[in-house]
Structure formats: structure tokens, C-alpha cells
Design a binder for these strands. Structure first.
Length: 480
RNA sequence: CGAGGUGUAGCGCAGUUUGGUAGCGCGUUUGGUUCGGGACCAAAAGGUCGCAGGUUCAAAUCCUGUCACCUCGACCA
């Protein structure tokens, strides 16, 4: 390796050490940096821009489906947190507490929210009087804190950014419809914008949210074959309503409990994009979510006319609505820029040098396939648009192909153990917690979710673990 | 919380065994030549050696304590 190249570190290959590759990528592409407090991360401009893109896509859809944004306080009194027993038990081990204000010891300690069910419930019980007030469909974009024992940037951090939707309804049917609608919105954006195929389905009792009647998730496969729970949607029934006394006067003039849902996605989605699409040269951003879709490089721009012509192209594409970056730094060579923007995952690179200007064209290079093509200036906007669409489609198909090849239908424990070393196992399961525990104990794999169309997905009637009658089709995998 | 590892310039590291007053590569700054796949030459700046004690004429180096981070496990929507 030439000495002069050492100043940009090379990435660890995915095959050598996937975890190290991930760390190399997120630090070198300047998505994040480590914070002074253990388990916290600093989101740098490129990483935060990606989060803002994700947020914009979801926020738009939340609004379209009648949700309103609010902001709840970060501190929750201990007594308020304690009202729903299962919920407390689930979160108590990882709550951070404020015990002192200024120099005064507090009368009652305050939890830094690990999630906001308790405060939403408290406020809803105040705000709801009559069926005319329902439904209430609120969402907030905020950060939460969970004192995790081990952390990885984006995947599990002590503090992380997310949205949490909380809704209350008159009927169980409405609540269930809401729960499903939000899961579908999660899936839609994940698959069609982030190009990551998702498995959607219901969680087992063991894995469901603390305090929920039912939890549904979308699960993605990373390139090391592990699962990432990328979004969850919960139906609480009247569970929290009973604990927090959220009652209203119904159409029949009776006091009734509301039916409640909550649902969330977090900055963990960024981890999903990185680990679903990245390659040994760095990130690969799907065009629809990429903070920068096109990077434009003038080549040999000390030469007559290059900068001027490149600038014209830049203005044209910017005006056409592309998220485009003109890299006219004269301090680094073109080769350096190629590698840097590839590492950052920009889907399309355009180069413009004296030869291109002479021929009335630009050179285009796709990040996903590394293919180079010549685009004519006359039809530039359309050709760029078509290329970006192809990249988006190609990346989804590639991820889907990978996932398909790494899901195995298994009928015994040996097959299950083998399948989860590099992918998901799809198995028939009796529904007992004991079998989940045994699979976790033996292989380190947990149940992920149960597909909705059980009839179509079933492929046997004995449990993969205990051999008793199987009730469900369940995915098992090692998980982040 | 258990096992192991690491703290020396912005980043990556050497130096610690055998104590003698800190070095290499990259990056950064300045000037010049370059520019179609990680450019080259020259000069320069940059360090309380994680922190606190101790031993010694003398500590990055030896001793004691402490803090932080990393990896693996356990834990964990």
C-alpha cells in the first residue's frame, strides 16, 4: 500500500469483521461521533440530515392520516410512572433518575422518560370527557433515555431520537385499525423510500411491549444475517386506560374506558440503512432517502470553461429538484473525491471535464453498481431522474434477494441452529414460552414475529422445538 | 454485573520488559507544481504521556489507587 494513501483509512471488510466495518463506516463518513457520556452519540450534519429525511417522510404520512404533533415534558414523576405494573417492571431497570434540582434534594424523584405512555395517559385522562373528543391521535418527535448496559451507535444508545405516536379510540376495532395502519406506514416508507424489505407480523407474548395487549413489528435482515427490529406498533386495549383512569361518556351515556395504541420508529432506522445496503467501500444510500442524491465534480477545472459549464449543470439539476452537491474543492484530487463520495454513499456521481464539455455530455457513475454511462446535456434532467429510479429499484431488489436467500424453512432444532448463524429461520411453533427460551438458550436466537397470513405461510403442524402441535408460523433470528 | 484489553499530538501507533526528560505515519498550516480513480516537493505548527498519590538525583516507563473507553458475555420493545 502506498504511503501517500494512508491518510484516508481503509474500511475493514464486512467479511473480516462486520461489527468493525460498521464502526469504521459510521465514524469515517461522519454520520456520528462518540459523546463524552458513555452510550450517547453525537449526530453530525450528514447523519442528522439523514434523520431529517426519514422524519420528513414519516411526518408527512402521519399528518395525512390525521395525526397531530405535540410535545410532552422529558421528566416524569415516579408516582406517575408506577401506575401500570407490567410497564414499570419492563422499564424500571433502565430508567435514569433526576434526584436533585440545583442544590435541593427533590421530594419525589423524576424519571427521564424512557417512553411517554405514562405522561400521555395522564394528560388524556384530563382531556377526554365525551365520545365527541375521540379519537385523539397525537405524535411527538423527541429523544428518550434508557440506561442500556451495552450500546452501539444508532442500534442501541442511551439517548436516542424517535417518534412516539399515542392514540385513543372509542372501540377496539378502531384501535386495532390504527395499530395496523401505522405498521403499514412504517413498512411503506422502509421499503419504498429506504429500500429495505421488511417482515411484518405479531410479536410473541414474551417479546411484546411491557403493558401492551398486542405488539406488531417490522423486522429487517442485516447483511450479517441478524435481525433488526425497525419499528413497532402496539395495541394496548384498555390496559393503560384502566391504570390511568382514561374514561369518557359514551353515546349511550355510560362511562367507558378508551382503547389506546402507541407506535414508534427511531434513529435505529439509520443503522438499518447502513447494514442493509453498505458495501466494502462504505455507505450506499437509496436515492429517495439520500441527503445528497447527486454529487457533481468538475474535472481539471483550472482549464478554460470547466467551472462555468459545471455550474450551469448544477443550477439546472438543482432547479429540477434534485438534492445535489457541487464539489468544487481545489484542495483534493478527483480520485480522492471519488472515493470520499463513494464512502458517503451518494447514489450518483456526475463528472464534467474538458472532454465532456467538448462533446456536450457528462459522465455518470452509479454507486450501487459502479457502472459508468454518458449522459447527454440536452436530456440531462430526465436521464438523471431515470438513473436514480433504477438505483432505487435495484437496491431494493438486491436487498430482497439477499433476504430471500437467507431465510430457511426449518423443521428441527439442528436446522434452526444452522439457519440463524447467517440468516432467519422460519419455523412452526407451539406458542409456548418454554420453547422460545430454549431456542434462545441454545442458539442465542429470539422469536421475531409471526406473519399475518398464517394459513398461507404454514408448512407443517409440529413445533420445531418440542414436537407438540404447532399453532403458529414464527421467524427466529439473532437480533440487534 | 462477569472475563479480557486499551489510554502517549486531531487520528492511528511506537517507546514501558532494562527509569535519563518524547518519536513515527497520516491529517493540519504556508508556498509552489498538479488535477479523467485516494497527487508531489519544501517549510512549519501541534504533547500537563487518562487522573491522583508514592518510590527515585531523575518516571510515559517502577508501585498503589482511581477514572474512562473498547471487545465478548449476561441484560435489553
Amino acid at each position: 500500500m502506498a504511503k501517500k494513501q494512508d491518510f484516508v483509512q481503509h474500511l475493514t471488510s464486512r467479511q473480516d469483521d462486520f461489527a468493525q466495518w460498521y464502526t469504521d463506516v459510521i465514524l469515517q463518513t461522519e454520520l456520528v461521533d462518540y459523546a463524552p457520556v458513555r452510550g450517547c452519540m453525537v449526530m453530525r450534519p450528514y447523519g442528522f440530515a439523514l434523520w431529517e429525511r426519514i422524519r420528513a417522510e414519516y411526518d408527512k404520512r402521519f399528518a395525512e392520516t390525521g395525526h397531530q404533533n405535540v410535545y410532552m415534558p422529558m421528566l416524569i414523576p415516579e408516582s406517575m410512572l408506577l401506575k401500570e405494573a407490567e410497564h414499570v417492571e419492563g422499564f424500571a431497570p433502565e430508567v435514569a433518575w433526576v434526584t436533585q434540582g440545583g442544590t435541593e434534594q427533590l421530594q419525589e424523584r423524576l424519571a427521564i422518560r424512557p417512553t411517554s405512555e405514562t405522561i400521555f395517559c395522564t394528560m388524556y385522562s384530563k382531556w377526554v370527557q365525551s365520545y365527541r373528543d375521540l379519537p385523539m391521535k397525537y405524535n411527538q418527535w423527541c429523544s428518550v433515555m434508557r440506561w442500556e448496559k451495552s450500546t452501539r451507535p444508532f442500534l442501541r444508545t442511551s439517548e436516542f431520537l424517535w417518534q412516539e405516536g399515542h392514540t385513543i379510540h372509542e372501540t377496539p376495532e378502531e384501535a386495532q385499525q390504527e395499530t395496523m395502519q401505522m405498521l403499514e406506514i412504517y413498512r411503506d416508507v422502509a421499503e419504498n423510500i429506504m429500500a429495505i424489505p421488511m417482515l411484518i407480523g405479531q410479536k410473541s407474548d414474551k417479546e411484546k411491549f411491557a403493558g401492551a395487549r398486542a405488539t406488531y413489528s417490522m423486522e429487517a435482515m442485516m447483511q450479517d444475517g441478524k435481525a433488526l427490529q425497525a419499528g413497532t406498533s402496539h395495541n394496548f386495549g384498555t390496559n393503560f386506560a384502566e391504570a390511568y383512569d382514561i374514561k369518557y361518556l359514551s353515546r349511550e351515556g355510560k362511562l367507558e374506558y378508551v382503547y389506546e395504541t402507541s407506535w414508534g420508529v427511531s434513529t435505529r432506522l439509520i443503522g438499518a440503512i447502513i447494514m442493509a445496503h453498505g458495501d466494502d467501500r462504505g455507505l450506499r444510500m437509496p436515492p429517495r432517502i439520500a441527503p445528497i442524491q447527486v454529487v457533481l465534480l468538475p474535472i481539471a477545472f483550472h482549464k478554460e470553461g470547466v467551472l462555468e459549464e459545471t455550474n450551469k449543470v448544477f443550477e439546472r439539476l438543482k432547479n429540477a429538484g434534485f438534492r445535489i452537491k457541487l464539489d468544487d474543492r481545489d484542495t483534493v484530487s478527483p480520485g480522492f473525491k471519488f472515493n470520499e463520495w463513494e464512502m458517503k454513499g451518494v447514489p450518483l456521481r456526475l463528472e464534467m471535464g474538458p472532454r465532456d464539455i467538448e462533446n456536450h455530455q457528462v459522465m455518470a457513475c452509479r454507486r450501487d453498481t459502479n457502472e459508468k454511462t454518458v449522459l447527454t446535456l440536452d436530456n440531462l434532467e430526465n436521464e438523471v431522474s431515470e438513473l436514480l429510479d433504477e438505483i432505487q429499484k435495484g437496491m431494493y431488489e438486491q436487498a430482497l434477494k439477499f433476504r430471500t436467500e437467507h431465510i430457511k424453512n426449518v423443521t428441527n432444532m439442528d436446522e434452526l441452529g444452522a439457519a440463524v448463524t447467517n440468516g432467519f429461520a422460519k419455523a412452526m411453533w407451539c406458542g409456548d414460552r418454554a420453547c422460545e427460551d430454549e431456542i434462545k438458550e441454545k442458539f442465542g436466537a429470539s422469536s421475531r414475529n409471526m406473519p399475518f397470513d398464517q394459513e398461507a405461510e404454514a408448512f407443517g403442524d409440529t413445533c420445531v422445538c418440542c414436537g407438540k402441535k404447532a399453532k403458529k408460523v414464527m421467524y427466529f433470528a439473532k437480533a440487534y
